[in-house]
């Protein structure tokens, strides 16, 4: 758009379908996140039917984890905590909230 004496406004919009819920699998909340995890959980509880589990984390950066409860059927809390602390801690500021989508493949084999 050329520069001129007249002023104008341009609106650019990216429209997509609002997805319910706004998060799929998990939120990792910094220790000083602008919203507390209880407030977040209550908001989720109001928005979606799917229940989320709250996991408190004893760490200097990560404060809490909110995870879709059904995922915990395929991975234990300990495995999840280990995964989060190992791979996401460096990506997260203590005042941020990260939205994560998880792909969990379970390999099953039978040993005779």
């Amino acid at each position: 758009m050329p520069l001129g004496s007249e002023s104008g406004s341009y609106i650019s919009a990216r429209i997509s379908e609002y997805k319910m819920p706004p998060l799929r699998d998990m939120l990792v909340m910094g220790k000083d996140a602008p919203i507390g995890c209880i407030a977040m959980k209550r908001a989720l509880d109001l928005l979606v039917k799917t229940p989320y589990e709250h996991i408190e984390v004893d760490d200097e950066v990560i404060g809490d984890i909110l995870i879709r409860q059904s995922l915990l059927r395929r991975i234990s809390k300990e495995q999840l905590m280990d995964f989060v602390l190992t791979h996401t801690k460096s990506l997260l500021g203590s005042d941020e909230v990260l939205h994560m989508e998880l792909d969990i493949d379970v390999h099953l084999s039978r040993v005779k």
Partner: peptide, 13 residues
């Protein structure tokens, strides 16, 4: 003062 935006439920957690 640490979390001025938090609700009391989180503050007293």
């Amino acid at each position: 003062s640490k979390h001025p935006n938090w609700i009391f439920a989180d503050l007293c957690k």
